[in-house]
């Protein structure tokens, strides 16, 4: 998948209460959650987002609670990709399960600034910064996780495992 959009840069240790505060966790609806995305960081944050824009973050993005509402809110806001220096563990698994593309780039994060236009090739883990002309190549995901991705995510994977058992 090729995603082209504007980078919205946030800081380090962005917690899930910043991504979607607990008071919004009374629904599982992605549109409603999306309309409140990053409300715990800055009220009205989501208004700056156009469909297919890209979130760019420093280290430990998504730390805190296990709420899957966090990746759902980001997707619901129209953001299909998050690029970060690093991700918190539970958030990483959740994003992956929800179909939110997460690219971990380490210190290369410094090559991306707020407002840059980015082109992300999710299949090859390649980020082109169209504003600066720089390219970042991401490390490959472990083979087992790629297998899960190829199966279409955890839901179809479990579905198949259940069918195989019968």
């Amino acid at each position: 998948m090729l995603v082209t959009g504007k980078a919205h840069k946030v800081g380090a240790h962005i917690d899930t209460d910043a991504i979607i505060p607990a008071r919004f966790l009374v629904t599982t609806d992605s549109e409603v959650l999306g309309s409140n995305c990053m409300e715990g960081l800055e009220p009205g944050w989501v208004k700056r987002v156009s469909k297919n824009d890209i979130m760019v973050a420093e280290e430990n993005f998504g730390c805190g609670s296990s709420r899957e509402h966090a990746p759902i809110a980001i997707l619901g806001a129209g953001i299909p990709v998050v690029v970060a220096k690093s991700f918190a563990r539970i958030f990483y698994r959740n994003g992956f399960n929800m179909g939110l593309v997460l690219l971990e780039v380490g210190d290369d994060i410094a090559k991306l600034s707020d407002g840059d236009k980015l082109e992300v090739d999710t299949g090859n883990g390649q980020i082109r910064n169209l504003t600066t002309g720089e390219t970042i190549i991401c490390a490959k995901v472990p083979a087992f996780m790629q297998e899960l991705l190829d199966a279409g995510g955890l839901v179809p994977y479990v579905k198949k495992r259940l069918a195989d058992r019968q």
Partner: peptide, 28 residues
């Protein structure tokens, strides 16, 4: 729930995950 790790106090390997991972574990 991210504080599932509490049960490590009893010597359990206990860890938080998201809802879909938990759905998979509930099924499998």
């Amino acid at each position: 729930d991210s504080h599932t790790c509490t049960y490590g106090g009893l010597g359990a390997f206990a860890t938080g995950m998201g809802s879909t991972d938990i759905a998979g574990a509930m099924a499998l």
